[in-house]
């Protein structure tokens, strides 16, 4: 069958559109039905406890799996999932640059997501996949699904008009307290928390170094849960390096303690004074990496 020039042109255009969207499209893992917002506060210096950082964590719950990530990445995800992503982002930056000039203030910036960790629960089935980064290197590792052993207690209270009940767990070096809502039968929560017969609305460790508290509940439709790729600068570039949870935690601690030494090693010369590295790293959220 001979292709008429008109059909050929259409075919080329269609192919381009498909290739374009594939190139920028991301892996869609599930469709979200609910979106929960958590305020996340953490102590940067666990020794002096006077530098609290805050972030907003979003938990997307789908039919089969869920994703917990930082709000700052939200715009990137949804924009890049669209074929116009790059251009739309530039437009936003342009408008912001103008508004900056009009308000007369120099760019101060929005605090970048303090939690670079993204937790995909039940993906693959029966496990969790975690992506995170150390400086500019991105890593991925697998973890057990429902790794907590909870003891449910009798205490109850109310959060956002929902009745919640308390449970405690010794999890990887910290003693956690979680409040879950028996009336929301979603066995999930922010970050890696799950395994209680209700949605975890609040969680904190006894030393109050890390705290999550729910601030918003939303029902959604047709919202894809995507596997966020590595984004470096303005280009989609790079892959996650596979590793294990303990190797990742040790690497993170080492980076915080020894960033000058690591920089010297990368450059292959002793440019930076290694005795100036910090001696007071803050403790990670999981402390069982020794």
């Amino acid at each position: 069958m001979k292709l008429k020039p008109c059909s050929l042109a259409l075919l080329i255009i269609a192919t381009n559109l498909i290739i374009n969207s594939i190139a920028i499209a991301q892996e869609v893992l599930d469709q979200a039905q609910y979106r929960f917002y958590y305020d996340y506060a953490w102590e940067f210096d666990t020794l002096t406890l006077n530098d609290t950082r805050e972030d907003l964590i979003i938990l997307q719950v789908g039919q089969n799996m869920s994703k917990s990530y930082s709000y700052a990445t939200f715009y990137y995800d949804s924009l890049r999932a669209s074929s116009d992503g790059e251009r739309a982002m530039r437009q936003i930056r342009r408008e912001l640059a103008i508004s900056v000039v009009e308000t007369g203030k120099p760019p101060t910036g929005f605090v970048r997501g303090a939690m670079g960790t993204r937790v995909y629960k039940n993906y693959p089935e029966g496990q969790m996949t975690i992506t995170d980064r150390i400086s500019s290197n991105h890593y991925v590792y697998k973890d057990d699904l429902n790794p907590h052993v909870w003891q449910i207690t009798d205490s109850t209270k109310t959060i956002l008009d929902y009745s919640v009940q308390m449970a405690v767990s010794d999890f990887r070096g910290r003693r956690w307290t979680a409040w879950f809502a028996p009336d929301i039968p979603i066995s999930d929560g922010p970050w890696k928390f799950s395994g209680l017969p209700g949605l975890i609305m609040e969680a904190y460790d006894t030393e109050k170094h890390y705290r999550f508290i729910i601030v918003g509940i939303e029902q959604v439709e047709d919202e894809p849960i995507v596997f966020s790729p590595v984004v470096a600068g303005y280009r989609l570039y790079g892959n996650f390096e596979e590793t294990t949870r303990l190797d990742f935690l040790r690497g993170l601690v080492r980076y915080r303690w020894n960033s000058s030494a690591i920089m010297n090693a990368e450059l292959g010369k002793t440019t930076f004074d290694e005795t100036s590295d910090s001696s007071r790293p803050h403790d990670l959220i999981e402390r069982d990496y020794y």
Binding site: Y37, L56, Y71, A72, F74, Y75, I92, R93, L96, S99, V100, P107, T108, G109, F110, V111, R112
Partner: peptide, 10 residues
């Protein structure tokens, strides 16, 4: 959610 006002990566 708070409006993301200035989006430089800081």
């Amino acid at each position: 959610a708070p409006a993301i006002e200035h989006r430089s990566d800081t």
